[in-house]
Simulated scan of single mutants.
Amino acid sequence: METHIGIKENDRLEIALELSKLLADEFVLYTKTRNAHWNVEGADFYNMHLFFEKQYEELDDIIDDVAERIRAIGHFAPATLKRYTQLTHLTEETREENTSLGLIKELLQDHLTIIFHLRENINRFATDLHDLGTSDFITGLMEKHEKMAWMLRAHLK
Results as ranks from 00 to 15, higher is better:
residue 145 H to V: 09
residue 108 L to D: 00
residue 3 T to A: 06
residue 90 L to M: 05
residue 37 H to V: 06
residue 114 I to P: 01
residue 73 I to T: 08
residue 42 G to N: 08
residue 10 N to C: 00
residue 60 D to R: 12
residue 82 K to V: 14
residue 124 R to Q: 09
residue 47 N to A: 06
residue 91 T to G: 03
residue 90 L to F: 10
residue 91 T to K: 13
residue 38 W to Q: 04
residue 35 N to G: 05
residue 75 H to Q: 13
residue 104 I to M: 05
residue 73 I to S: 00
residue 87 L to A: 03
residue 42 G to M: 11
residue 91 T to W: 01
residue 101 L to T: 14
residue 138 I to V: 15
residue 151 M to E: 12
residue 1 M to K: 05
residue 76 F to V: 12
residue 87 L to W: 06
residue 146 E to N: 07
residue 33 T to F: 04
residue 50 L to K: 11
residue 14 E to K: 15
residue 125 F to I: 00
residue 23 L to A: 14
residue 62 I to C: 07
residue 113 T to D: 15
residue 3 T to P: 01
residue 10 N to W: 11
residue 45 F to D: 04
residue 59 L to H: 11
residue 95 R to Y: 11
residue 70 I to H: 06
residue 113 T to G: 02
residue 124 R to Y: 13
residue 15 I to E: 06
residue 22 L to R: 13
residue 115 I to E: 15
residue 16 A to H: 02
residue 9 E to F: 05
residue 100 S to T: 03
residue 136 D to I: 01
residue 60 D to G: 10
residue 39 N to G: 05
residue 141 L to C: 10
residue 12 R to W: 04
residue 131 D to E: 03
residue 29 L to R: 04
residue 61 D to Y: 07
residue 102 G to E: 04
residue 82 K to L: 12
residue 128 D to L: 12
residue 72 A to T: 10
residue 41 E to N: 07
residue 144 K to I: 11
residue 80 T to K: 09
